[in-house]
Design a protein around this nucleic acid. Sequence first.
DNA 1: AATCCCAACAACCGCCATTCT
DNA 2: AAGAATGGCGGTTGTTGGGAT
Length: 337
Amino acid sequence: MGRSPCCDESGLKKGPWTPEEDQKLIKHIQKHGHGSWRALPKLAGLNRCGKSCRLRWTNYLRPDIKRGKFSPEEEQTILNLHSILGNKWSAIAGHLPGRTDNEIKNFWNTHLKKKLIQMGFDPMTHRPRTDVFSSLPHLLALVNLKELIDHHSLEEQARLQAEAINKFQYLQYLLQPPTPPVSLTPTTSNNVVTDDVETMKLLNAFASIKENQMMTLSSSPSPSQLEATAHSLFGNAPVSPVHDSYPFAHLPELQNPCSFQTNLSKDHDNNNNNTMVQASEFAIFSQGENSPNSPWLPSSSTPSPPAETSFTNTFNGDGGAVSSIWPDHLLDDFNFS
DNA sequence: AATCCCAACAACCGCCATTCT
DNA sequence: AAGAATGGCGGTTGTTGGGAT
């Protein structure tokens, strides 16, 4: 089953359509319908391939096409549908009478995508950008530093570090929404279910890393060390739930994170008179039919830390945990396990 | 006035699924 | 059943026009 040869035929015109060509196409279709697109150009007296005619008709000449600026309502609809459907332009177009998939795709790429980025949202996940996974190689490097220094030559250290970072980049790739290459099925507990052997190996490695890290950090780092680590991992970005400024935070899909569970716990930091809040037991899950597009939906009970809050983090083998340091006076309203 | 840059969008390309023979 | 034809889809490129320098 080969590719359609229609556009490879030589001598056929390409590029922008002239008004004369448009008129020929319109008149022919009004009179005879389009029938077979392959046969149409000859019948209509056009030196174009059938595919080019079809695209011109469906994207531009069709009488029911609505042109002009997208209304705020249409913009909202596109944002909402994209957060659920992803780049399914034809499916999105099905909900916007008179708009074509091509038009919506162009509008997304030239307007909406930039708008979301400027507002600090990932245009693919529709979540605030935290870059947690992009920080993992750095985290791994920190975790393994002590062991490497203790047991290996400089050359060996470099080789092992590179190998470890490659593994994490692969893990990052595997877990990247919205089109993960492996099936991570939704869970209701803190287990990760996957058929992919390589993924399981990496997740097990993840678990052991967490243990190592806890040992590394058990000597109670100073606030300045903590802050430096947090800054290196997260910059100034808050790890927050659905943000108030998100343009479609009202979506029911984002209000009902069915596969996400969070336990809150806290530890007092006597050195800094702050409290470390840990949100743990969140599960890795895919965007199955009943799941929204974004895999890191928080529980509605997860408090959103103030923007100026600094972060450290821990990960466990069940998917992870995020800790943040809060001033005590902001914690009165929350329940902890 | 000429040139450059960039945003917008029309059109093309390649792949895939479905239908036809 | 198998291969070819066709239509549909999403990603990408090319063209154009307007603003900045």
